[in-house]
């Protein structure tokens, strides 16, 4: 196994926006309104001495009806950064990751059904960004700031 730190050498200064959006009402345009999940967090979290998850939500009920989970990450540092998300509801669970180059926006969209409304849990963690290895949380060498917001009806 290769050292984790070597694979994480690029994780600097990423900003992440985590959003849940629902389809517009009939006749309306655009996505529905937002709710803030929490203030921006650091990844790893401040004073974090153990654990690999930067931020995790308690179970929430996000919406009524089908919706899409949108994750946006903008890297403010000078190196490419990658963040993973774990999404679980009462009916689905999944992992994904997004990487972004400095100054660029990365976006993930996961479409979820009406049956996935309740019990939504989201966790955010740093990843290596490897597409050939399983998505897994990694320990980052340098703290980075992560914004976490929830868009909900």
């Amino acid at each position: 196994m290769r050292p984790v730190a070597r694979r994480l050498a690029g994780a600097l200064g990423a900003a992440l926006v985590l959003a849940v959006a629902v389809p517009p009402l009939a006749g309306a345009a655009g996505w529905a309104a937002t709710a803030v999940l929490g203030p921006s967090v650091r990844c790893p979290a401040p004073l974090q001495r153990s654990g690999l998850t930067c931020a995790a939500t308690p179970p929430i009920t996000a919406h009524r009806g089908a919706y899409a989970l949108i994750v946006e990450m903008r890297v403010a540092g000078t190196r490419r950064a990658c963040v993973g998300i774990s999404v679980a509801t009462r009916t689905v669970a999944g992992l994904n990751q997004a990487c972004a180059a400095p100054g660029r926006l990365a976006r993930l969209v996961e479409r979820l059904g009406a049956s996935d409304a309740a019990g939504l849990r989201i966790a955010v963690f740093l990843t290596s960004g490897s597409s050939s290895r399983p998505i897994a949380p990694q320990r980052g060498p340098v703290a980075q700031r992560v914004g976490l917001r929830l868009l909900a009806p």
Partner: peptide, 21 residues
Amino acid sequence: VDVDSPLLLDALAGVGITAEL
């Protein structure tokens, strides 16, 4: 993918174990 793996790796780190998939 194993959706449990981030939680498990996080928990292992929390008890002082260096773990990797």
